[in-house]
Simulated scan of single mutants.
Amino acid sequence: MSVFSWPVRIYWEDTDAGGVVYHANYVRFMERCRTEWLRAQGIDQFALRQATGLGFVVREMGLDFLRPARLDDELLVTLAVKERRSASMLFGQEIVRGDTTLLRATVRVACVNLDAMRPAQIPADLFRPEFL
């Protein structure tokens, strides 16, 4: 299984008054990692919608907050595909600082027709095999 990673640095805007990353920002960091994973495969989400009407939405998410990130930390957000179904994918994601895991997550993303907001089959040739 291939692991994709995306670096993140923590800025003031990411933290609360105490310099600790606000919990919702971890979700944003993971979303960016998934977007960059798609981009690394040559998938432009806007073009995908224009051509097919399809897009990806988060269906389910489980988060395990282990340690806090703080102002100016350099983090690595990782993604691994755990399961692929006809209309959804399950990702394992982590956010780490050096050798310390700060957060573990599972994220199920569904493929939908964005106009109807109904489940749709993921095109068979959408993802490159080395990324799955």
Rank of each mutant, 00 (worst) to 15 (best):
C111Y: 02
L103N: 13
D115K: 10
A40Q: 15
C33H: 00
F29I: 06
P123W: 00
V81L: 15
L76F: 01
L66M: 13
A17Y: 10
R104V: 06
P68H: 02
P7Y: 12
A69N: 04
P129G: 02
E83S: 14
G53S: 06
V58R: 12
V112G: 11
R39S: 00
R39L: 01
T100Q: 14
C111Q: 01
A17M: 11
R118P: 05
A69R: 05
T52I: 06
G19Q: 08
Q45A: 13
L71Q: 07
G98P: 04
V8P: 13
E83R: 15
E83Q: 09
E36W: 01
T52N: 13
H23K: 11
L38P: 01
L54V: 05
T35C: 12
F29N: 06
D99Y: 02
D14A: 02
W6H: 10
Y11A: 01
G98E: 12
P7N: 07
F46V: 09
Y11P: 03
M30E: 08
V20K: 14
D73T: 04
R32Q: 11
G53V: 03
P129E: 06
D16K: 03
N113Q: 05
T106G: 11
Y11E: 03
L48Y: 07
E13P: 08
M117W: 05
G53I: 03
A80W: 10
F65Q: 02
E130K: 09
D44E: 09
F91P: 02
M30K: 11
A51S: 12
R97P: 04
L38Y: 05
R39G: 00
I95V: 14
R9D: 03
L79G: 11
L103K: 09
F4C: 03
F56S: 03
V21Q: 00
P119Q: 00
R85F: 05
R34V: 08
P119G: 01
D16F: 04
G18H: 06
F65L: 06
S5M: 06
V112C: 12
S2Y: 13
S86P: 15
L132G: 01
F56V: 13
Q41V: 05
E83N: 11
S5A: 05
I43E: 02
D64I: 12
T100N: 12
E31T: 00
A116T: 06
A105R: 14
Q45V: 15
V112T: 04
V20W: 12
P7K: 02
Q93G: 14
P68N: 03
Q93C: 10
L38G: 01
D72F: 00
C111G: 07
G62L: 12
A116V: 04
T35N: 13
F65H: 04
E94N: 13
L126I: 02
Q41A: 07
V3E: 15
R28V: 15
F131H: 15
G98H: 09
K82I: 13
